[in-house]
Design a protein around this nucleic acid. Structure first.
Lengths: 245, 245
DNA sequence: CGGCCTATGTTCGATTCCGAACGCTCGAAT
DNA sequence: ATTCGAGCGTTCGGAATCGAACATAGGCCG
């Protein structure tokens, strides 16, 4: 509300849309449209980050790799945010892997140019620090959620977060995939998804998944979803609240 | 190494010690020594933050409160860092509660003065953003750790983190307390602690706990501990690496 | 149409952890 | 010394989840 105001409907990334026109104008020439193809790794663990991406659509997962080689999702970015958070903090390394989980497009800027802009624009710096804090809140809640909540609640939460980041009600998604994200077994997801489907909250079939009762799904989720969403709204304005609308 | 250099041995907080002398000198008159008594809540969920604390000793836990009223630890701060992280991001609210888990002292600065200093001092801003990123890494690893690792490993990790933040080998700590921190049952901690004690890694009795074989305890912990520690060292210099020395 | 791969359904036993007790014992206070 | 409470040890049944299979079925491709 306070910060976010859709200056330009053509700007589909929430952060860019929230910038004052002058700052956006200065940034624009440095931004280049790129595709985010499904399953592409945008950067790996310990890579040097050379770009920041402002997604316009699609969904990017941040994955931590454990000692046993398993990966687990520790964060999600979509058009409400950016990919390459360490650069906001002035660092150029990442502990996690960024991988495209639903295809889309993004606006890309080089790390050096990004750094320049961060120094020159108070509005950009302020905005991105707020985003960083909102993202931090989401991870914090995930840490608590992973420790205490049942698969079914976590699945509902995850589906809501995914649903927030796409335009359609229906999106490609397998149980196998979700099980990796949540760090649980695949049958565990099948069971939990079966319960949600019987309750009429979702519908799925062979690699596609649809939310059929969004309020119901929200009720089935743990509060972590709502808390994170509120925090995004508070810090970045209602318009940035992860786009369930 | 690069950033941290003990300018003044009397400065016991790692972040303050890493500041250039000029910046530290400007900050000093605004810092006031305060006690951190055991179990004191420094701020609660949704409080407005009016101070930043730079601990000199002791340990402060950040606790998330879940829907059922249970609390679970989602972060730890000691003399390597600060309490009041949202103010570094330009915000003055917190989603979590900050509570003193081991008594100590801290240097305190008002939120307004802190904000002024952040604007004036590039060194302070850079340093605190790096700390924020290191802290962020720790939470990220906790999220993965909470989802996948067994109680015993998580207990070892927690004890190492606690051990890093105290001077003595021996510190007051009950199983009940740890169980709240880890988000598990108290007997679960007793079992896990019993195993670690039988292995000769720790010793405990009636509310006190001691690390008797630090390398062994590190081996018993999951890699999350080492990864987080490396990240602190990389971002803030070896001297800031959580003070196990 | 038939083969084949992928996605989902289902089962098995084993393990971890839960929630809730109950008992013991150390150590401090009276 | 006795009392008493906090901290720890231990047990119970049950729930959730694990790891590893195997079975079924949709859809693509030849």
């Amino acid at each position: 509300m306070a910060l976010i105001d859709q200056h330009n409907a053509a700007v589909r990334n929430g952060l860019l849309a929230a910038l004052p026109l002058a700052d956006l104008a200065r940034l624009r020439p440095k931004l280049h449209l790129v595709e985010l193809p499904f399953n592409q790794t945008l950067y790996s663990m310990d890579d040097t980050l050379d770009t920041v991406l402002f997604p316009e659509s699609g969904m990017v997962s941040l994955l931590a790799t454990l000692d046993d080689g398993e990966q687990i999702e520790v964060g999600i970015a979509g058009r409400e945010g950016l990919v390459g958070l360490p650069l906001v903090f002035g660092d150029d390394r990442s502990l996690v892997e960024a991988r495209v989980q639903m295809e889309g497009t993004a606006l890309r800027i080089g790390a050096a140019a990004f750094r320049d802009e961060m120094e020159q624009s108070d509005a950009l710096r302020t905005l991105l620090l707020r985003y960083a804090l909102a993202f931090h809140a989401q991870i914090t809640l995930s840490a608590a959620c992973n420790a205490r909540h049942a698969i079914e609640q976590r699945l509902a939460r995850w589906l809501l977060i995914a649903h927030d980041r796409i335009e359609a009600n229906d999106f490609p998604m397998t149980h196998e995939f979700i099980s990796m994200m949540l760090g649980v077994r695949r049958p565990g997801v099948t069971i939990a998804a079966g319960i949600l489907q019987k309750a009429g909250l979702i519908h799925y079939a062979r690699g596609r998944m649809a939310v059929t009762d969004r309020p119901g799904l929200e009720a089935a989720s743990c509060e972590c979803y709502h808390t994170a969403r509120r925090e995004f709204a508070r810090l970045l304005g209602a318009g940035a609240a992860q786009h369930s609308d």
